[in-house]
Design a protein around this nucleic acid. Structure first.
Length: 671
DNA sequence: GTAGGGTTAG
């Protein structure tokens, strides 16, 4: 083509005769109406081609328009299009695809207008493409209009609208379309089922029962042998937290591929079943099937599982595998690794990846967010803000998650005014509307700092409905500051929004226990029992020589448990001599002081700490992870031990890291 | 001609 790229109109006449596809539409093509009204009329910036030939009746730019579309030269393609009397199906297809690719919605509407006027709505192929295009733009009404205007609705047309509604999170509308299909006797294909299954998750409220019903339909229609459909099923069950059903469906799959395995690994990783995720990853590799090789998506879930366990050494092995497979060229894998190291207490290694990755792959907003949140969970709020400012300086627009990380960092670091300023800047400077999660961060920030009334006022002023995270943050703050009245108010919402969450009942009971309101404690405990809920058992674990050792409060399985108890008893004895007094204020009433102390002494994090002291070298940092919030008594004792034993101790609890050294904790007792 | 799994937070 040579210089013709720069001058498509001049060259049009040159290429026209050479074009191999200049047939007139075949007789089976939809009817055309070449009235003046149907002539394409674009935005005024479209001028006529340099040398249009108004007298040409056999005008045919189709081939050229198509190649211009392929080159991404939509402007020129559209100019030619306005002079093309007989656009073919292929020309329309090229234009529609080019519009989607280039996100040019105004052009799309113009193409649609002419397509309708030319009678191409009779062509279900093009209507499918149009619906997909509007789906891409998020223009639901336009997509629906095309659908309604399509007389011959093939399964492609129905599926295209189904997909559009699902992608736009309009689950209810998608499900009613699905019913309409059934009512009209449209024979569903595997695609219809995949979309309908996803629609169950997007409906409000999500419809787990309906998911089961559509699953039954899938079985009856004989689609359980279709990998795509069953993988969708695994994923849907995973996303509603039904791990058992996901696994059952997965086990029954006649053919599994890397995507189905990855979906199952992701299911475990996302639902907190980290060990199970790693175990099934091992199983996948044991298959030794040359077709089933872990890819970047698989590895991201595996990395997440390692991060969930804070399994630093295992994470390093996985990192090695990533390098050997050259998956370090994938930005999402690198982002997951940054987060892994941050969650394993090795921010330095995360920072190293962040610094060096630019030589291999460009960073994206998630890379920055990972660093911001990483510093945040370690309590280094100022570092978080510094990275954020660097990110803005680099011209990266922050996402809503950036602010979740930043505000969380301010909360952990006690930077109240900075937090307020950043929250205000969301809308003013970054055009982001604060969501429920952001309000939850602010409530946490203000609440922790003891400004409970201001936190409550912020909730009252919210323009959106406060979600469970908002009330949960308020309840957490009430526990720290012992505010019964506000706690009860928060619980009245939480018990309605998430009646199954035992954690809320426990927090309320703790607040009553501290105030010595034993009758109220009993009432809440009864409520918990009536609803068949159980307190999540505290569990702490520690990695020693590449093995993970976990502890629960009553632990007789560990072979070294007697040694652990003996050391702990000795440590507590010595700590008491230098003024340590066990803190039992949150142990639920009705027990003698000795009993209460015994309960506190059996806490899993103390057992893990004693085990760490026995099993590690003096120079090692002791790294402990706990599945709940670190208890105040354990926090106090760990501070004393860090000084007394001259050890560095790093504890990750459910919210953040605590760096203990020389009798102090990095959280400054503010967590 | 359409489709399945993934990164950051809570």
């Amino acid at each position: 083509m040579g210089s013709s790229y720069a001058h498509p109109f001049l060259s049009a006449t040159i290429f026209f005769p050479k074009s191999p596809n200049l047939q007139l539409p075949s007789s089976s093509s939809p009817p055309r109406y070449h009235s003046l009204r149907s002539r394409f009329c674009f935005h005024s910036s479209f001028q006529s081609p340099a040398q249009p030939s108004p007298t040409l009746t056999t005008n045919n730019y189709n081939h050229l328009i198509q190649s211009l579309c392929k080159q991404g030269n939509l402007n020129h393609a559209l100019k030619l299009f306005s002079h093309e009397l007989n656009p073919t199906q292929h020309t329309y297809e090229s234009l529609i695809l080019a519009c989607s690719r280039q996100n040019t919605k105004s052009f799309a509407l113009a193409i649609d207008g002419r397509l309708a006027a030319d009678g191409f709505y009779n062509d279900p192929f093009l209507c499918t493409k149009l619906i997909n295009m509007y789906s891409h733009f998020g223009s639901l009404e336009s997509a629906r209009k095309v659908f309604d205007g399509t007389p011959e609705k093939t399964i492609f047309v129905w599926n295209a609208l189904l997909k559009t509604l699902v992608m736009a999170e309009k689950g209810d509308e998608a499900l009613s379309l699905f019913s309409e299909m059934a009512h009209n006797g449209v024979p569903f294909d595997s695609f219809s089922y995949s979309f309908a299954l996803k629609a169950c998750l997007a409906s409000s409220p999500p419809a787990p029962a309906l998911l089961g019903q559509i699953h039954n339909h899938v079985i009856r229609a004989g689609f359980v042998s279709r990998v795509h459909v069953v993988t969708t099923l695994v994923d849907c069950y995973a996303k509603i937290g039904n791990v058992v059903s996901a696994r059952t469906v997965f086990d029954e799959m006649p053919h599994k591929n890397v995507v189905s395995w990855s979906a199952m690994i992701a299911c475990y990783a996302k639902n907190g079943r980290h060990f199970a995720a790693l175990e099934i990853f091992r199983e996948m590799n044991m298959m030794r099937d040359p077709e089933i090789i872990p890819n970047s998506v698989t590895m991201i879930s595996v990395i997440q599982a390692c991060a969930g366990l804070a399994a630093l050494n295992l994470g390093k092995v996985v990192h090695g595998y990533v390098l050997r497979r050259a998956l370090n060229t994938i930005v999402s894998v690198m982002n997951a690794l940054i987060s892994l190291y941050a969650k394993c207490g090795r921010l330095d290694l995360g920072q190293q990846i962040f610094d060096k990755m630019i030589y291999i792959v460009p960073r994206n907003v998630v890379s920055w967010n990972s660093m911001i949140s990483g510093f945040g969970i370690h309590g280094f709020a100022k570092e978080s803000i510094r990275i954020f400012e660097k990110m803005i300086g680099a011209g990266i627009s922050p996402s809503p998650i950036t602010f979740v990380g930043l505000l969380g960092a301010c909360s952990h670091g006690g930077l109240i005014d900075e937090g307020r300023r950043l929250f205000d800047s969301m809308h003013k400077e970054h055009n982001l509307l604060p969501q429920s999660e952001h309000y939850a961060c602010m409530v946490d920030l203000l609440g922790r700092a003891g400004q409970l009334d201001e936190a409550a006022k912020l909730i009252e002023e919210m323009k959106i409905e406060p979600g469970q995270t908002v009330w949960g943050s308020l309840l957490g703050a009430c526990r720290i500051h012992g505010n019964i009245e506000l706690a009860e108010r928060a619980c009245s919402h939480l018990f309605a929004l998430e009646p199954w969450n035992a954690g809320n009942y426990i927090l309320l009971a703790d607040i009553y226990a501290e105030a010595k309101l034993c009758e109220e404690v009993r009432r809440v405990k009864n409520l918990l029992e009536e609803r068949g809920l159980h307190k999540l058992q505290g569990c702490s674990w520690i990695e020693v020589r590449k093995r993970l050792y976990s502890f629960v409060s009553v632990d007789e399985l560990n072979p070294q448990i007697e040694q652990v108890h003996a050391l702990l008893t000795e440590l507590v004895k010595q700590a008491k001599e230098i003024g340590y007094v066990p803190n039992t204020k949150f142990v639920l009433c009705d027990l003698e002081h000795e009993e209460k102390e015994k309960i506190v002494m059996g806490h899993s994090e103390k057992l893990a700490l004693a085990f760490g002291l026995i099993s590690s070298e003096k120079i090692d940092v002791i790294r402990i992870t706990k599945n709940l919030r670190l208890c105040e008594d354990c926090h106090e004792l760990t501070k004393i031990i860090s000084k007394y034993m001259n050890r560095k101790i790093l504890v990750r609890d459910v919210n953040r890291f605590h760096h203990f050294s020389d009798g102090f904790c990095s959280c400054m007792d503010y967590w």
